[in-house]
């Protein structure tokens, strides 16, 4: 089941399946660790939302030029 990132609830974990949009922004997000295959936790949903990616807190407002599709996973993974 693929969901846009903003559909996740607080505390839920997910694996990023696809990052689409302008290549420049896909690259920028990858530099920050948001890329296909990484695991993240939604700390605070909404816009902007607060994410936990391998112990690092990122604040994100996807906007029009990129979309992040994720697959929810159970439990807390150790690393990504």
């Amino acid at each position: 089941m693929l969901l846009p990132l903003d559909m996740l609830r607080a505390g839920e974990w997910a694996e990023v399946e696809e990052v689409t949009g302008q290549p420049g922004w896909v690259g920028r997000l990858a530099e920050l660790g948001i890329r296909q295959g990484c695991r993240l936790q939604v700390v605070q949903p909404g816009s902007p939302c607060l994410l936990n990616i391998s112990g690092c807190r990122l604040c994100l407002r996807p906007g029009d030029c990129s979309q992040i599709l994720v697959r929810p996973v159970d439990g807390v993974p150790t690393a990504c």
Binding site: G21, Q22, W25, R28, L29, R57, L58, C59, L60, R61
Partner: peptide, 10 residues
């Protein structure tokens, strides 16, 4: 210009 992706590290 397009709304930039607002992404920031805390």
């Amino acid at each position: 210009g397009g709304t930039p992706v607002f992404v920031m590290e805390l």
